Amino acid sequence: MVGLNERIRTFYDQSTPLWLTTWGEQMHHGYYGPDGRRRVDHRQAQLDMIEALLQWGGAPDGVGSFLDAGCGVGGSSRYLARRYPGATGLGVTLSPVQAERGRDYNRLAGVDDRLRIVARDVYSLDPTTDGTYDLIWSMESAEHMADKQGLFDLFFRLLKPGGRLLMATWCRRPEPPYLSPSDQYTLQQICKLYHLPPLVSVPELGAAAGASGFEEVQTADWSAAVEPFWGAVIRSGLDPRNWPGLVRSGVGTMQGAWAMRYMRRGFATGAIQYGVVAARRPSSARPTPPQSAPAHS
């Protein structure tokens, strides 16, 4: 049986060219104001998402180094590189196609001397890089990673003392009230078609961050702020001009397009939540948490 990482890699290798043609280099939700009612171009909303998370999470004014964990083609990475012109950055993605396209974008943006994008598993980052980063950015990638506690332990070790973690990720509604059979089916289909391990709740993410040793942990549900994005994505999927690219991208991408209906349903019923997490590694010297074995497929 093909492992989870291989399925994720194949999905993004196949679907990324279509996404880039249709939506551009930002491969994440847009932000439409706290209640989702702000009317803005959807590509602008994707940029607004980056800035909203930076502001909400208390991103530092000065950053010397950052990690974009699960960077896609590096849209957020380049935004951070421009926002912090003296910083060096590393973007990590499982997809070789995304890494290659990201490096092309870096050259076009003139940041290739400060920003590297590589194809590798984030759990496999060299332990000698512990204590390297002022900022770790995780934009809609943690939902693909099965070992959430191991992920927070890793991020804690990689950050410098006083460094900050900012994360946005797909979640499920916390229980109780318990998810209905219909909601459970919706979540199962989303996980199957987008190659995700079982989703966790926003409170579970906050608890994992605290268990790793982070302080100033804050979490929130931004579902209302991002829900309009799926209407825009579905409309793009229904545009006949995009159908040839969808067919060329393969069965996996077409299944992902079919999964959009489940995402829309999940937001409508509240089964899906869009979680954000901000946390800080303590400035004072203290032992880092023990390294946990990542759950690889």
Rank of each mutant, 00 (worst) to 15 (best):
V2W: 04
R7Q: 15
R9V: 04
T10Q: 14
Y12A: 07
T16R: 06
T21G: 06
T22M: 14
T22N: 04
E25N: 05
Q26W: 09
G30T: 10
D35W: 02
R38E: 15
R39S: 12
L47M: 09
M49N: 07
E51T: 14
Q55A: 15
A59N: 04
A59F: 06
P60C: 06
G64K: 00
S65N: 04
D68L: 01
A69Y: 06
C71Y: 09
G72Q: 08
G74K: 01
G75Y: 10
R83K: 15
Y84Q: 09
G86H: 12
A87D: 08
A87S: 12
V92N: 09
V97H: 08
Q98N: 11
R101K: 14
R107G: 12
A109V: 02
A109P: 00
G110K: 10
A119T: 11
D121E: 13
V122M: 12
V122A: 13
P127H: 09
D130E: 15
A142W: 04
M145E: 04
A146F: 01
A146D: 13
L151A: 14
D153K: 03
K160Y: 11
P161T: 05
P161S: 10
G163L: 07
R164Y: 06
M167R: 05
P177S: 09
Y178G: 06
Q184K: 15
Q184E: 15
K192Q: 13
E204G: 05
E204Y: 07
A209K: 11
A211K: 15
V217K: 02
W222A: 05
A224L: 14
V226R: 00
V226L: 08
E227F: 08
G231V: 01
D239P: 07
R241S: 14
P244D: 11
G250N: 03
G250Q: 05
T253N: 06
M254C: 07
W258P: 01
A259I: 01
M260W: 13
Y262V: 02
M263Y: 13
R264N: 10
A268D: 13
V277I: 15
A279D: 08
A285L: 11
T288R: 09
P290F: 08
A293H: 10
A293P: 03
